[in-house]
């Protein structure tokens, strides 16, 4: 499978096709709509990553080496961003996830969504994704 850096590069290239915010957001919304559904049983408080405005549910599993994520959000733009994160990190090695810098969000001009004031739960989600990876590294 492609490395985190390769996928980030791929996404950056996809976003370069758009020269205005509208195209970019329509693409993001489309990604949100296409995100495979999380199993309803994981849409509980136990799996919630709380933002002030939108909520994200995140579930992780592993095969002893790689981490697999499914997620959902009640807001579609947040869901699009969640889909991007999953695209990049899903099925990667725990060590790679833990050290991933995820600079592509900045490159594609969506950095504002990772600012703590956006309160969309995304910053906490990335943190949570990495925590799952770190937990797996520890148990190994």
């Amino acid at each position: 499978m492609s490395s985190i850096a390769d996928i980030e590069k791929e996404i950056t290239e996809d976003f370069e096709l758009f020269d205005d915010w509208e195209g970019k957001y329509e693409y993001l919304i489309g990604l949100g709509k296409d995100l495979p559904l999380i199993d309803e049983k994981f849409k509980t408080d136990e799996y919630i990553v709380r933002g002030c405005q939108s909520r994200v549910w995140l579930h992780a599993s592993h095969d002893g080496n790689r981490v697999f994520y499914t997620a959902d959000s009640d807001a579609i733009i947040t869901k699009g961003l969640v889909a991007l994160m999953i695209k990049v990190l899903n099925g990667q090695k725990a060590e790679d996830i833990a050290k991933a810098e995820l600079g592509f969000i900045d490159k594609i001009g969506l950095k504002e969504h990772l600012s703590p004031t956006r309160s969309n739960g995304l910053v906490s989600m990335v943190k949570q994704m990495k925590l799952y990876a770190l937990a797996l590294i520890k148990t190994n």
């Binding site: 509208e22 957001y25 405005q53 939108s54 807001a75």
Partner: peptide, 12 residues
């Protein structure tokens, strides 16, 4: 439509 989504588009 989630208010957060509409707020984001309006901000743009």
């Amino acid at each position: 439509i989630h208010p957060y989504d509409m707020g984001m588009i309006l901000d743009k």
